[in-house]
Design a protein around this nucleic acid. Structure first.
Lengths: 184, 184
DNA sequence: TTTGCATATAGGCATTTGCATATACTATAC
DNA sequence: GTATAGTATATGCAAATGCCTATATGCAAA
């Protein structure tokens, strides 16, 4: 799936692996992330499949960069994926819920401390989403080479992050309350 | 992490891999899932680490079962994990958001159809969570060998699922509305 | 002056995951 | 009578993921 994140951005303009890491970290990180080595590996695989092509750009003051460009074949693959509707729900993996599930016999004070800590983290994440305006996103899209229309869709994913964090905080508050009642 | 799901259930009572698959599917599936082959592999690894031990139970009418029991070492490992507070947010991977992110140039009618389909799926999931009462969960806990206190924590994870699906449906409705406005 | 950070690419390795396949018996449905 | 579903375990293989390490330069801060 990282494949399509990379093709998606390369469809806007040519980029290096390092560029892609930066772009993913500032735009899709909350629903799709990857570390640098995984990005480099995936780019290499995409090139050997003929979906992208690379040129090494020599630099004097900075390290040389390998810049990737999407091919016609890559564009076709991306369009194919985009036009195929997703008809399943993506399964979640939430470590916190797994821990809470088995926490009945753990010291409730420790469990509560963990939930408060999580609340802080999610509160900060929520503030980041709220602080990001449509203007910020439009500017981001322009930098990435995407047309203004894309900003609407990018903002939809930002909104998903905002709603997710609001929901998460509400769940944490409810759960903290329930555990406090247990020990009261 | 599947390791701890398995140890967690085996801490209640001895179970086979097949049993564990069934239990995971009915209780932790929405925040931690695994297919059968992964469960068997992980059990084998846990046994070779001395955290669980197995005995083959011969059956006449049904296939033989390999029943796993947690060891003292396994219990210690589980307690260790449970008492270590989680101090990061679990990163998400949401295929739908990735697709929406890059959908600005896809036929909006197709995008809308996909979102409506997703709405159906999430609505059905929401109804499943709402239909599950605390009594159901208590019964489930009893079957699994867990003390009644555990039901409170299990219900907290059910509630997380309910809130998640409500949030998801709300986001889908908002996003459908925004895309409809674009093409109007 | 040294430490660390930003830029830039890449290999190595272990773990996790997903998916397919094989085997085998029983019970139920058509 | 036959097909399918449920019970039960296990292997093989490929892909994805995560984390660590190596290399190299320039720049800014401590």
């Amino acid at each position: 799936m990282l494949k399509y994140a990379l093709l998606g951005f390369l469809n806007y303009r040519s980029l290096s692996g390092y560029d892609l890491k930066g772009i993913i970290d500032t735009s899709t990180r909350h629903f799709w992330h990857a570390d640098l080595s995984q990005i480099y590996k995936t780019l290499k695989a995409l090139e050997s499949d003929g979906l992208i092509a690379s040129v090494v750009e020599a630099n004097d003051d900075r390290p040389d960069r390998r810049v990737y460009t999407i091919t016609d074949s890559g564009r076709a693959d991306l369009q194919q994926w985009l036009s195929t509707p997703l008809d399943e729900m993506t399964p979640l993996k939430e470590t916190l819920l797994l821990k809470v599930f088995f926490s009945a016999e753990t010291d409730p004070v420790r469990v509560l401390a963990m939930l408060h800590r999580q609340r802080d983290l999610h509160q900060r994440a929520l503030e980041r989403y709220r602080g990001q305006t449509l203007a910020d996103i439009e500017q981001n899209a322009a930098l990435t080479g995407a047309a203004p229309i894309h900003a609407v869709f990018w903002d939809a994913t930002r909104r998903a992050g905002e709603l997710y964090e609001e929901m998460y905080i509400r769940w944490l508050d409810e759960t903290i309350e329930r555990i406090e009642q247990l020990i009261r």
